[in-house]
Computed example of a mutant assay.
Amino acid sequence: MQITITIDYHTNQSISMSGTFPLRGRKPEKVAFEWWKEIKRDSFNPVLEKVIINGDRDVTELVKTLDKAPPPPDNLPF
């Protein structure tokens, strides 16, 4: 199954990006969050405004919550 994600954010200007992604057993907000991480890595100081799934489902708060969550613990044996 595929979903369409639209992410609105701003840096020094307002930007809207859309893309179609496979779910592959993941939740839509997780897929959106992974794409948001890529956008953050490639942009200068982006601020998330809105995340829409399939044109009608607003998951902005879920993505912001995932973005603020602490990273998983590092359980390496050394």
Rank of each mutant, 00 (worst) to 15 (best):
S14Q: 15
R41T: 11
P28Y: 07
T6Y: 01
N54W: 06
D42N: 14
N12T: 14
V47N: 11
D42I: 05
L48Y: 01
W36P: 02
T60G: 02
I7A: 07
R24V: 10
S43A: 12
R41F: 12
S18E: 13
D67S: 15
D67M: 13
V31H: 02
V51G: 00
L66N: 06
V59E: 05
R24G: 02
S18Y: 01
K68W: 03
L23T: 07
D67I: 03
E38S: 11
I7W: 02
A69H: 12
H10I: 06
P46L: 05
L76F: 11
P71I: 05
T4E: 15
L48H: 01
Q13T: 14
P71E: 12
K64C: 06
N12F: 14
E61H: 08
A32N: 02
P77A: 02
I5L: 13
I5G: 01
A69P: 00
P46I: 08
V51N: 01
K50H: 11
F44C: 06
Y9P: 09
E49C: 07
E38I: 11
S18A: 13
D42Y: 06
I7F: 08
V59W: 02
I39K: 02
V51A: 01
R24M: 14
E61F: 06
D74W: 12
S16A: 13
P73F: 08
A69S: 15
L76E: 14
Y9E: 09
W35P: 01
F78E: 08
F44G: 05
K50P: 01
L62G: 01
S16R: 15
L23D: 09
R24L: 15
K37D: 06
V59D: 03
Y9S: 10
E34Y: 08
L66S: 07
G55V: 05
P28S: 09
G25V: 06
V47W: 03
I3L: 14
G25K: 07
E49W: 00
T65W: 06
P22T: 09
S16T: 15
E29L: 00
I52D: 00
T65C: 01
R24C: 11
N75C: 08
G25E: 05
N12K: 12
I7N: 03
S16G: 08
E38A: 11
K27C: 03
E38D: 14
D58E: 10
V47M: 03
V51K: 01
R57T: 15
R41Q: 13
L62N: 13
E38P: 00
K64H: 07
P22C: 03
L23V: 05
F44Q: 12
P22G: 05
M1N: 12
W36A: 04
I39T: 02
N12G: 06
M17V: 15
I7V: 15
P72G: 03
T6F: 00
Q13D: 13
M1Y: 09
I3E: 08
E61Q: 15
